[in-house]
Each structure stands twice: as structure tokens, then as C-alpha cells.
Design a protein around this nucleic acid. Structure first.
Lengths: 116, 116
DNA sequence: ATAGTCACTTTCTTAAAGGTAATCGATAGT
DNA sequence: ACTATCGATTACCTTTAAGAAAGTGACTAT
């Protein structure tokens, strides 16, 4: 069983990179919501991501911004609000979200069958 | 910003389930290799997944088996070997792997640009 | 008898992710 | 003055994932 070809190694690295960036408990949910509603304030995201705390949400958003997937905009509203939206580049993750969503739905059914 | 529709909530749960099952440092690599070579022994997988320890590999494989994504077969060889292969059902994760691989490759380039 | 292979398992330790709760600073309303 | 909102930040703590190192048991080869 040889893996002495660079393509395979590169592929593994690409998968690892992607999952390092997008993995974890919240990133996909945040991106899913941002793709769905396009613009969301901090508060909105907090309410949508049931169970997330401001500290964790803040960290996730910073990481997504660092990776060029979302933009952060401070609005001149009465109490200052901050808007987040997906970048053009974030469109590249839509296929991943879709595939994950599709598999996740099928898997929920599959596991239900297993225990019935 | 309302999320008072069940479809959205279901979708979020589906994504969460999928990432809970497939997330982590190794599962996608293991599945990628199994899809590529179809049958692999424990030793092969350990060599392919550079850096993994037997304990961790063993745990990942058990979880994948519990989730009906791979099968485990003990072979009657001189020193006993064990073969793992993806189930028919595991074909459902191929689109996720492909999407992740595609995004990961693009992202590696993107981040290279950012720091150059 | 000794050493090696394979597929694990066990124990211990560390690092990272995530959660709780309180607080901050700016602003506005009562 | 007091309270509330928004978007955080801080300190602290718990949980989980992962890694290191060694050992086990069945077997084979020398």
C-alpha cells in the first residue's frame, strides 16, 4: 500500500486544513446562518446559535474574519451594533455546507433506523 | 431576525450531527484513504495517517464502525490482520470529502496570497 | 529461548476547546 | 441616579481530544 505520490499527500493536507478551519462546534452553524440571511448582528447570531456564549461567538467570528470568510462592520446605531456578512470568497464553502447538511439529514434517519 | 421555522432548526441540527460524527483530526483522512484504496489493514491506515497513534486510530475506527460507515474484518493470516472497508452507506460522505478537499485546496492558495 | 509482527489496550499527561459568570464602555431612556 | 442594550473581554474552571510510552496476547521465525 503505497502513498508515495504527492497528490495524495497534498489532498490529505487540504482536507486537514479545511477541517481545522471549519471544524469545531459552531463555525458551520455561523456560516450557514450568514449564507441564509446574509447580514447578521452579533445579537442575532447569538440567538440563532442556541447555547453559544458571547465569548465563544466572539472567538469564532474573529477566526472566520482572519480567514477572510466574513467581514465585520461597526454600525453608527444608538447602542453600537456590529454586522457580520460573508465575503464573496465564503461562497467557496457553500458546497461544503450543503454536502454536510445533506449527509447529516440522511444520517439522522439512518441512526434512527438502527435503534428501532 | 426570526428562526421560527422548523426547517432551519432541523438543518442546524443536521449540520451539527454531521460535524460531530466526522469532525476531529483524523476521520476524514481515514475515510478518504478507505474510499481511495477500498480495503486497508490497521497497519496501512496507521502509515497513511502520518502521526496517528494506535490508540487514537483504534478509537476513530470504532466510532466509524458504530456509525455504519466502515466494516471490520479479522483475517486468518499468520500474524492476525484486520481489514477495514467503507460500507455502501459511506458513499454518502463522498460529496462531503470532495467539497472539503476542493475548499481546502483553494484555501491553501488563498492564505498563501494573504502572506506574500 | 528470544525476538519480531500485528492489532490493539492501558495508563498517564498535556493542550485545546468550550462553558460560567462577572464586568466594561459607550450610549440612551426614565 | 438608575437601569438597560450591545458587543464584547476577562478570569476562572471543566471537559474533551489527542499524544507518548509501554504492555498484552496470539502467533511465527530463527
Amino acid at each position: 500500500m503505497n502513498m508515495n505520490n504527492d497528490i495524495s499527500k497534498e489532498n490529505i493536507l487540504a482536507i486537514k486544513d479545511a477541517i481545522e478551519l471549519l471544524g469545531g462546534k459552531w463555525k458551520f452553524c455561523i456560516l450557514y446562518n450568514l449564507q441564509k440571511y446574509h447580514t447578521m448582528r452579533f445579537k442575532d447570531l447569538q440567538e440563532m446559535s442556541v447555547g453559544i456564549t458571547p465569548k465563544v461567538l466572539s472567538k469564532q467570528l474573529q477566526e472566520l474574519e482572519d480567514n477572510l470568510l466574513i467581514t465585520r462592520t461597526v454600525n453608527a446605531t444608538k447602542p453600537v451594533t456590529v454586522s457580520y456578512e460573508p465575503t464573496k470568497y465564503a461562497e467557496e464553502v457553500i458546497p461544503v455546507i450543503d454536502a454536510l447538511l445533506s449527509f447529516g439529514s440522511k444520517h439522522r434517519k439512518k441512526i434512527k433506523e438502527k435503534y428501532s
